[in-house]
């Protein structure tokens, strides 16, 4: 009798646990679908009036040059404060961003410290690194990215590859699902991509993680219809 009761109780409690887990899983699933299909890619309905904190992920070399061309025409009073992130091994990109911010500061008279911050991030994988050691380095990179994203919690993310932007975009997407912070993610595919999206672009496109993906060649847009053709940045 008792044994039967215990058995009954444990089966009831395991049923409760199971259904709770199933409920939470379904809840998260519905929320992910809601974020992807209902919210992402749609313009925000409210009229923006306040400035938005903006995370700018600099990719190195040609990627950084393209991003700086975009920043040159972006309204700095709307996209402020600005947080710049570049790979720890990339010494040039943050220098170039600082140059831009310093010239902006000398024009406006506002101290750079109030409008812009510059940070470095560990890269998950360097060019030529083996795939085995990159498991470990990827782990470190994710923790570091998480720490930076908790500190910044940007409203807008501008990125244009390569891989550095992926962990940051994934974390931003998780923050959206959990309701921690709503960030609009914009990805500009590099001008070097004429026929196919880069791996970063393809990931963000396939997973619907970016709100808008811009491409610089018309033939690329024809291949990826959800992308937006914007002409050349360079």
């Amino acid at each position: 009798m008792e044994k039967g009761n215990g058995c009954c109780f444990s089966s009831v409690s395991s049923a409760v646990i199971l259904s709770t887990v199933a409920f939470v899983v379904i809840l998260i699933f519905v929320r992910v679908l809601y974020v992807i299909y209902y919210c992402s890619g749609r313009p925000l309905s409210k009229r923006a009036s306040k400035p938005v904190s903006t995370l700018i992920i600099l990719g190195s070399g040609g990627h950084t040059a393209e991003m700086l061309n975009l920043l040159a025409v972006l309204q700095k009073d709307r996209f402020t404060p600005r947080f710049y992130i570049a790979a720890a091994t990339d010494n040039m990109s943050l220098q170039k961003a600082m140059l831009l911010e310093n010239s902006l500061a000398s024009e406006s008279g506002i101290d750079v410290a109030n409008t812009a911050q510059f940070m470095k991030i560990y890269r998950s994988r360097e060019v030529g690194q083996s795939y085995i050691t990159s498991v470990w380095t990827t782990l470190i990179a994710i923790v570091h990215a998480l720490w930076l994203m908790i500190k910044i919690r940007p409203e807008v993310i501008l990125c244009n590859g390569p891989g550095t932007c992926i962990p940051l975009c994934v974390i931003a997407f998780i923050f959206k699902v959990l309701g921690i912070r709503w960030s609009s993610i914009f990805y500009v595919e590099s001008i070097a991509r004429v026929k196919r999206l880069s791996l970063s672009g393809l990931l963000l496109y396939k997973l619907s993680m970016a709100d808008q993906i811009f491409v610089q060649w018309p033939q690329l847009q024809r291949q990826y219809p959800r992308a937006t053709y914007v002409g050349r940045l360079m």
Partner: peptide, 14 residues
């Protein structure tokens, strides 16, 4: 090229 179209898209979206 010219980055203005990208900036316009982002502004409109926000």
């Amino acid at each position: 090229g010219d980055a203005t179209p990208v900036a316009n898209h982002i502004n409109r979206f926000l």
